[in-house]
């Protein structure tokens, strides 16, 4: 046990898994928005028949057992594999498994549909006329995207960010496969709960589970409330 412990509901709790979980979730969300926004825009405006294929690929983590995804991630992250070799070219030590970076990469894949789907849905609702109008007023691509598309898609952005964050907080299988259970390094809250139950520390498991429950409910409540508030009328 760690020296800095929190007392919640009279139970001593090691807070490091909580901090780690939020850190992973935050970084994953930032990564997902950075990749997800251009990707969702590209898919939303896509006319070709490959669109259906891509949509199915993005949605895969929704239905795949996390262990399957985690298994393939492990193989991809093999320190002797091509990904690691490529990383070494860029000066990285090539070690992804059982590290923070590995957790973020795996989480990003796992939470991808939660970011891309709401974004794509929002982008599909943006009327082409508004973009065309901006172009006739000499707005270049990044200009109209930032000033017209993003403000119109703020609900989708908000939903994407909160769901990606919350879903990363709630993952178990993938992070266990890729990150393992190294205290202070890769042990996230969900894994800590599993650990406590294994060792019959039901009090700690209860506290952490309650925290997760409150957090998850609050996030969903926030999403639905903001969705109402930020409704944009088009037309």
């Amino acid at each position: 046990m760690n020296e800095a412990q929190w007392i919640i509901f009279g139970v001593a709790i090691d807070p490091t898994p909580i901090f780690l979980t939020f850190k992973v979730a935050l970084v994953t969300t930032i990564v997902l928005l950075t990749i997800g926004i251009p990707m969702a825009w590209w898919m939303a405006r896509m006319q070709s028949r490959w669109k259906v294929f891509l949509e199915a690929v993005v949605a895969l983590p929704l239905v795949l057992p996390p262990t399957v995804l985690g298994f393939y991630m492990l193989i991809l992250m093999n320190p002797e594999g091509s990904v690691a070799t490529a990383l070494r070219v860029f000066g990285h030590d090539g070690q992804l498994t059982f590290t923070f970076a590995g957790l973020v990469v795996a989480s990003a894949f796992y939470s991808l549909p939660f970011a891309v789907q709401p974004l794509m849905h929002a982008f599909e609702q943006v009327p082409q006329d508004l973009i065309d109008a901006a172009k006739t007023m000499r707005a270049k691509t990044l200009d109209w995207f930032y000033n017209i598309v993003l403000p119109l898609s703020r609900r989708g952005l908000l939903t994407a960010a909160t769901l990606a964050f919350a879903h990363t907080v709630g993952e178990f299988g993938v992070v266990l496969m890729v990150g393992g259970n190294i205290p202070g390094e890769t042990r996230m809250v969900s894994i800590a709960i599993f650990d406590h139950v294994e060792t019959l520390e039901y009090a700690q498991a209860h506290v952490l589970s309650t925290l997760m429950l409150i957090f998850s409910f609050s996030v969903l409540f926030l999403v639905y409330a903001l969705n109402r508030r930020f409704a944009v009328k088009v037309g």
Partner: peptide, 20 residues
């Protein structure tokens, strides 16, 4: 030539005012 460089003004059927 991109629309941005054509120096045209365009009034759309539905107006296309930016609602935000």
């Amino acid at each position: 030539t991109p629309t941005q460089q054509r120096n045209i003004g365009y009034v759309f059927q539905q107006g296309a005012l930016f609602p935000t």
